[in-house]
Design a protein around this nucleic acid. Sequence first.
DNA 1: TGGCCAATACTG
DNA 2: CAGTAT
DNA 3: GCCA
Length: 300
Amino acid sequence: MNDEWRTISYRKAISALKRQKKPITSYQEAIKIRGIGDRTAEKIAEIIETGNLRRLQHFSEDDEVIKKFSDIWGVGSAIAMKWYAKGYRTFDDIIQNVKLTRVQRIGLECFDDLRERIPRDEVTEISKRVEEAACRIDPKLLCITVGSYIRGKPTCGDIDILITRNNTDGKTSSGPFLKLLNTLREQGLLTHDLTKHQEENATSRYFGICKLPGGEKYRRIDLFTVPFNELGAALLSFTGNDIFNRSMRLLARKKKMKLNNHGLYKNISRGRGGDSLTEGTLIAQRTEREIFDALGVPWR
DNA sequence: TGGCCAATACTG
DNA sequence: CAGTAT
DNA sequence: GCCA
């Protein structure tokens, strides 16, 4: 079921509603709001008049089951619905009857913990341990905790750490990366691997699960290595949030450019599907400021 | 009717 | 490749 | 889902 855009649309409508200063009291008021159309305004009107939405009464426990299945790491809507179609309704059904993939087993094992948000202080503590380990391997490694943490949120869904190294001496961060992962595993900080990455690429990513020694809960952690000259593009992309990223990339697209986690490119021609046909020319990647300027966006 | 709040890396 | 993830 |  591809309700991706419907979901996004509802989210947009919700945030538009939250922005309203006065309560909405009618269909006419609701439909004036940008992002709320006929269908949503109808639903709002029904809630105003009757106090609830009939449609929601039909929202059954079945939907809850599919939702819960897809909350397992490694299980998306397709697999969740497949399991449902086979008649499975509980985690126990799944464990008994399904040949789970390695990551799905981990997702299930850590299910409860991974649903919890992580207090900011704990993210700080975990980041510090990663940074110390990295520094012992190579003092010039630079670790930056990005994601919601760098945006100053009081809690985070996971821990995202970007690792880079000033490469003017010819070395990069990709070499020490595997060593760092091994060190963190030996320390017991990393408890489960969700990705087994291939070779030592210039840029590589690790997804896993960690737990502070004496800590209460398993936490999702992502580690990325980034070439030093791409740091700006990487920061922009991993700082988010998602909506901000997408809007920046859409802006780039409208200007016949392309923005990704490696950099900003110009002179892009795109096919019908929106995929770029030409490589384009790299015009900015080293700092966020460069990219903002090249896109014509006021800096912060 | 079709684009939108993207583009890309792993897994099996 | 489709699916899932960021 | 919304919008052009």
